[in-house]
Amino acid sequence: MQYNTDNQGRRGFLVRATQALSALIGGALGIPAFVYLFTPAKSRSTGGWVDAGDISQLKLNAPEELPFRRVRMDGWKIITEKSTAWVVRLSEKEVVAYTPQCTHLGCAYHWEESKGQFLCPCHTSNFSIDGKVLNGPAPRPLDRYLVKVEGDRLLIGPEQSKAKGA
C-alpha cells in the first residue's frame, strides 16, 4: 500500500507542534484548576474579636470556662458557632484564654480544683495553670486565643498559632 507521507523533518515538526499545543492547553486548564482548589477563599474571617463577657469578677488563678459566640465563614455561608475558652487571670495584668481542646487528640479537658491542674480524661494528660504539659501524651502546651481586655470586657480573637499568618 502506498501512503502519501511527510518527509522525516516535517513529520517531526508536526509531532512536536501537536505535543506543544496539547501541553499548552493542559497547562491553561490545569494551572487555574490547581489554584482554584488549593488557594484559600479570599475573605476568611480570622481577625474578628468577640466579646466573651465581663471578667471583673474573675479571681486570680481560678480558671473559668467562658462561652462565646463566633461568626465564621463556612464556604459561602456565615455561621455563628458557640465556643468556649478556659480563661485564667494569671496576674493582675495578664489574662489568658486557652482553647477548650486538649492538644493531644482534642478531648475536652477540665480544671481540677483539688489538684490545681487541668486534666484531660481521655489519656490523662495534665496541664499546669499556665498551660504547660505536666505529664501524659500531650505534645505541646495548651493552645491559646489572642485576648484583649477593654474595661471589664474580655475580647477573644483567633487562635494564637493561626493568627500569625493573618
Binding site: Y3, N4, L14, T18, L21, S22, L24, A28
Partner: peptide, 27 residues
Amino acid sequence: VKPKQKFYPRQVFKDTAAISLAFIILF
C-alpha cells in the same frame, strides 16, 4: 486513485491546531 494518508501525525496536527484556536477564543 490518489494515495491515502495516515491519520497521524498530519491530520492529528490539524485537529490539534483547530482545537488550540478554539481554546484560545474560549479562554
